[in-house]
Structure formats: structure tokens, C-alpha cells
């Protein structure tokens, strides 16, 4: 499933994928894979993304429709 929230948070901060990748210490392809839903990041990377985008884990990664 695509993670559009990361993409929109990144766009709100006017960051390119490469710039965000540099901020969190991964490759541009990894950011691309996360946004496309092709890769599930570790909690460590999730936290780094949250800090870089000034968002909480819930705001970027919580899926409401998956709650029981």
C-alpha cells in the first residue's frame, strides 16, 4: 500500500526524495520504495523520518482501517 502521507509531508517541507534520504541517512531509492509501499522500514528509520518531517509515528504510519 502506498504511503502518501510521507510523500505529502515531504512535499509540505519542500524536500526532494534525495534531500529527505540525506537527512535520514538512506538512499533515494529507499525513500522511493517506502512511498510506493514496496518496503516496510524498521522502527529506527520510521523515527528518523518522523524527526526529519516533524511528524509523529501515528501521523506518518498508523493505518486506521487496520485497527480491530
Amino acid at each position: 500500500m502506498k504511503n502518501l502521507r510521507i510523500k505529502s509531508a515531504r512535499a509540505a517541507k519542500d524536500l526532494s526524495q534525495q534531500q529527505l534520504a540525506d537527512l535520514v541517512g538512506v538512499s533515494r531509492q529507499t525513500i522511493n520504495a517506502i512511498e510506493l509501499g514496496n518496503y516496510n522500514p524498521t522502527i529506527k528509520l520510521c523515527l528518523a523520518l518522523c524527526k526529519a518531517l516533524d511528524k509523529t509515528l501515528d501521523e506518518l504510519f498508523w493505518e486506521d482501517n487496520e485497527t480491530p
Binding site: 541517512g25 538512506v26 538512499s27 531509492q29 529507499t30 518496503y39 522500514p41 524498521t42 529506527k44 528509520l45
Partner: peptide
């Protein structure tokens, strides 16, 4: 920084 990231 020429390391492999976690996805790689």
C-alpha cells in the same frame, strides 16, 4: 557516507 542502508 558509502554504506548500505537497511533496505539494501
Amino acid at each position: 557516507n558509502t554504506e548500505y542502508d537497511e533496505r539494501q
